[in-house]
């Protein structure tokens, strides 16, 4: 269960204050697949960075498993991000000079998983998202966008997170590949009982999710 209560994030630039997230409250039960839609600049990415503890809110709280994430100490937040959250980004954000396999092993290293288990788990995950053994040993530059996004999903799953946050994961992909990636996420949510919150512009995708939140100027629009 993830519960967001009156969440606000302001950005000050000079005299003006941008209310990127302006008093949002909602909750998503475990294992649900939620989508966030909204116009450009409506605050979708900002909301996601707050949920992933990449940034601190101006006010409000985010309660995950009864723990208020916004009140955690910095060093605890590192562990929270690494173990409880998996990120999938629009532009994949893989580390360019590491192979697909090494990219997937990275969060396991940060979460202090025993060295011996990392490689086996990474290979297993990559196989699950459909990467061949040959592709697993390639660096991101030698993989297609769709393949890179699969690696990113495998990386997001590495530490068996409670919550996967995806910011327009299909935004850089053609509609067919996008649909495949989306189905992959959807299946995972069901089989692993992982909560997924994804930002998307694609209404055909949002229609298939358990719940859809629509943002406008940093606030939720009742649907």
């Amino acid at each position: 269960m993830i519960e967001v209560i009156d969440l606000k994030r302001n950005f000050k630039s000079g005299d003006t204050t941008v209310h990127a997230v302006n008093g949002i409250s909602f909750s998503v039960p475990d294992g649900q697949f939620a989508s966030i839609v909204g116009q450009s600049g409506s605050g979708k990415s900002t909301l996601l960075t707050l949920l992933g503890a990449l940034d601190k809110p101006t006010s409000g709280s985010i309660v995950v498993d009864g723990q208020d994430v916004t009140k955690m100490h910095d060093h605890k937040l590192i562990g929270y991000r690494g173990r409880k959250i998996g990120f999938v980004f629009q532009n994949y954000n893989l580390v360019p000079n590491l192979t697909a396999l090494e990219n997937v092993m990275l969060p396991m290293e940060f979460a202090h998983m025993p060295r011996a288990r990392r490689k086996a788990r990474a290979a297993e995950l990559l196989e699950q998202v459909g990467l061949s053994a040959d592709q697993q040993d390639r660096k991101p530059g030698k993989l297609s966008g769709g393949q890179q996004q699969r690696v990113a999903i495998a990386r997001a799953l590495a530490n068996k997170p409670k919550l996967i946050l995806a910011d327009e994961p299909t935004g850089n992909l053609d509609s067919k590949t996008g649909k495949m990636i989306f189905d992959l996420l959807h299946d995972l949510a069901k089989t692993e009982n992982t909560t997924i919150i994804t930002v998307t512009h694609d209404l055909s995708i949002s229609g298939k999710t358990d719940v859809t939140f629509t943002l406008h100027d940093g606030a939720l629009v009742k649907t």
Partner: peptide, 16 residues
């Protein structure tokens, strides 16, 4: 910059 942001986002500490 971005790469540093990424590995911090997936659980690396500043020290690491």
């Amino acid at each position: 910059r971005r790469e540093i942001g990424v590995i911090k986002a997936i659980g690396a500490s500043n020290v690491k």
